[in-house]
Structures are given as structure tokens and as C-alpha cells.
Simulated scan of single mutants.
Amino acid sequence: MSLYEKVKETLNGNKTSQNMAKSMKLDADGEPIVINVNQKIERDLFKNIRQNSFFNLINVVKTDYQQGESIGIKLPLIASTLDYDGRAADNAYISQANEFLCKKLSLDYYIPYSKVDAVAKYLEVKLDQAIKILLDRQWVLSLLITGFNHNELSWLKKIRTAKPENVINGTKVGEEQTYKSINALVKAGLEKIGEPLKNSGEFVVLCGRNIIPDHPVLIKYDDLDPDQTAQIIISQKLIGGLRAVNVPYFPENSILITRLDNISIYIQKDTVRYAEYEKPERNRTEIYTSMACDFIIEDCNAAALIENIEIME
């Protein structure tokens, strides 16, 4: 019997200990490692996510359940002229309920000692504070990368799967092309969204960096980023009649037309795991984290995706 199995057997019968045993894994030498299941770390994670410029604009849902009904998007109802006998309450949510399913997402990385030293010196903080600052930033940015680029979990994948007819792929934009301008392409994408959804006035265009026009922009910064790297770029000029926004790690040649309240991340409570190891032989700190989450488009009828755009100069 391995050491890991012996530990689990010894802990058997105690619910708290069983939960601890489930969060163990073995290191390279076969020794058990207990991943920290710390409520403070989980609270800090949610706080940092909500401080991020983009996540602050969408739905960040903390759920007690691994699977359940999503919150949906809400629209005003059309008023009725029926008298009392003919009236009936209606659901204020425009679409049928969607479902979320939180799956384990592992975010493992390392921070070089040189980077920790630089941040500590720059911000005049202690080394452990510098590590926490870097951890907070990396954790949130990793969620952004996953939300826009993961092959199975991303918001864009959800649209491709649930509403392929709302996807335009591989189009060219230019004088001799079907779409003469990005404005025309965005308007064509908006036409894929039915009424009354597209008339809500809340739609925006998420653009890749090769798409957002060279107009004056408003730059928002992430409070967690000590380098003050731009997190959101908002064009001061409309594209296809909609506000244009660029978000870090959004695919560079793509466009997503939707409402910001149509984009959600669901995170299951009490699933955040964290472990930190000093590796002086490699001059770095290694960090292993995981959580159960899902990236949801609340109503794919209220979204249009345009991918692999080629702009012909």
C-alpha cells in the first residue's frame, strides 16, 4: 500500500479529513501534498475577479452547485390591453433556461524570483506581498485566456456549438470584397440576431486588436496590474452603430456582437484549491491552483460571432 493510500485509510471516517484526502496529490517523490482549501483565498479570488476591468462588466456568478439553471438575460415585456380576465403573467426572460456545468480548471504556473524582486522593489512591498500581487494578476488573466481561447470551455466555443448559424467564418473585408468595411461586416453580423433582441440598445462589439479601428480610444487599467498594462480599450467611434471594445486575449481577427450581461462565468463555491512551492534550484516559486467553473453565453440567440477576418489593404 502506498503512503498516499495509507493516509487516506487513516483519515477514513472523518468527513473533514475525507475532503482533505480528496484534495491530495503526490509530488515527484511520491509524497502526499495537501492543497490548501482556504476560504480567504477563495474570497480574495472573487474580489480580484470583480476588480478586473472586463469581469466587472459581465456576470460573475458564485454558485453552491456544480450544475444548474443559468440566470438568463432579461428584456421588458410588450404591454397588453387585455382586461383582468384575459391577463396572465409571463416570464420576463426572453429565452429558455440555459444550463451551466462547472468543471475543474487547473491553472499551474511559476513566478521567477527576479520578477518577484522587481515587483517588491517597484511597489516597495515585502516579497510575500509581491508574490500575492503577481498571483492575483496571473489568476485573473488566466481566466480571461480560457474564456476566449479554450477549445472546449470558451464563450466562443459555446456560440459555435449552440448557434452555428450565427457564426461568420473566414470572410474578407475590402473594396473588392463582399464587405467593403468593418462597419458593413458588423451590420451583417447584427442581422443574424433576431428582433426584439438586437434592438435593446445594449449590444457591443468585442474586437480583436487587428479589428478595432485607429480612432481615439479610452483606456481602462486593471487595478491588480502593477505595470498598468491596458486591460480594456474602448473606441470613441461606433462600429456598425455599436460601441467597440478590445479585451486582452480576445482573438485578434475576430468580432463578437452581444450584450455584456449575456456573458457569464460561473464558479462553484468551495472548489478553489491552492498550493505554493519554493524551488530555489530553479530560482522560482511554483503555484498550483484549480477551481470548478463554467463559461456561459446566457442566450446564444443574442450573440453573433465573426472569425478569421482578413482585411485586404
Rank of each mutant, 00 (worst) to 15 (best):
L156D: 06
K157H: 12
K157S: 04
K157T: 09
K158N: 15
K158Q: 15
K158A: 15
I159V: 15
R160G: 00
R160M: 05
T161S: 13
T161N: 02
P164Y: 03
P164Q: 07
V167D: 04
I168Q: 10
N169F: 00
G170F: 01
T171Q: 05
T171L: 04
K172R: 15
K172M: 08
E175N: 11
E175M: 10
E175L: 11
E175P: 02
E176C: 05
E176K: 09
Q177W: 06
T178N: 12
K180P: 01
K180N: 09
S181F: 12
S181L: 04
I182K: 07
I182A: 08
A184F: 10
A184S: 04
L185N: 06
V186W: 05
K187S: 14
A188L: 08
A188I: 09
G189L: 02
E191T: 12
K192M: 13
G194P: 06
E195L: 12
P196K: 01
L197R: 01
K198S: 14
K198P: 15
N199F: 13
S200V: 11
S200Q: 11
G201P: 00
G201I: 12
G201Q: 10
E202V: 03
E202D: 14
E202F: 02
E202K: 15
V204Q: 03
V204K: 03
V204S: 11
V204P: 03
V205P: 06
L206Q: 08
L206F: 15
G208E: 04
G208R: 15
R209F: 12
R209E: 04
